[in-house]
Structures are given as C-alpha cells and as structure tokens.
C-alpha cells in the first residue's frame, strides 16, 4: 500500500481551505532508467473527494501531474469536526483513501 496522504482542512469562517499532498511516483512512461529501458507509466488517474460522505470534487489526471501531487481548494459550508476524505486510484489499480477532520 502506498504511503498515506497528508490532508489538512483549515477552517476560515464558513469555508475550509483543504490541502492534499499525495505520495505517488507519477511516472510518465517517457522516462528511461540508467540502463536505457523505458520506465513503465505509473500515475494517479482518478481522484474523488467527499465532505461528510457527499462527493464535492473529483478529477481525472494524466501523467503530466507532478510527482507527489498537490491539490488545494476552498470548501464552502464547512464546519469544525466535518470529515474530508480523499481517494485516489492509479493506472495499475492501486488505490488509497485518507481522511482529515476540519479544524
């Protein structure tokens, strides 16, 4: 299983600033290793974010997203104690879900 994501959801008024840092190689499939062999593509393709179980943001990503992808957005109508959950799925079927509490 991949390393855990780092998620922070910081309350400011009735909004929360959500910052997500995922741990993933995000191999493009273009790069060659020291022996000259192409390194197979390995990247996150789908991301789904929920707020108290309700879907709020989802994404499809290509290999051009940076290694250890970062995503930041503001969530409306958030309250302290709410749960923000993030799930990603990569092109090899790997997946990981993590959750943070709005504070």
């Amino acid at each position: 299983m991949a390393d855990p994501m780092r998620i922070r959801a910081q309350l400011a008024g009735d909004k929360a600033t959500v910052r997500v840092l995922m741990h993933h190689e995000m191999e493009t499939g273009q790069r060659k290793d020291s022996a000259g062999r192409t390194v197979a593509a390995w990247f996150i393709q789908e991301v789904a974010i929920t707020h108290n179980g309700r879907p709020v943001l989802s994404a499809q990503w290509g290999p051009a997203m940076a290694k250890n992808p970062f995503l930041q957005f503001n969530l409306r109508g958030a309250r302290a104690g709410d749960r923000v959950a993030v799930t990603w799925k990569d092109n090899r079927g790997g997946t990981r879900s993590d959750e943070a509490v709005v504070a």
Binding site: S58, A59, P63, A64, M65, P69, F70, F73, L75
Partner: peptide, 19 residues
C-alpha cells in the same frame, strides 16, 4: 494534465502542480 469536476460546494479555484 487534468480534468476537475467541480461540485457546487467547492470554490472554482484550484491550486496544483504540473510537469
């Protein structure tokens, strides 16, 4: 690089990093 489906609960402004 990315397609984001932005729900109404999310402000339509996203910060990320691209290669």
């Amino acid at each position: 690089a990315a397609i984001f489906e932005v729900g109404e609960a999310v402000e339509p402004q996203l910060t990320t990093r691209v290669k």
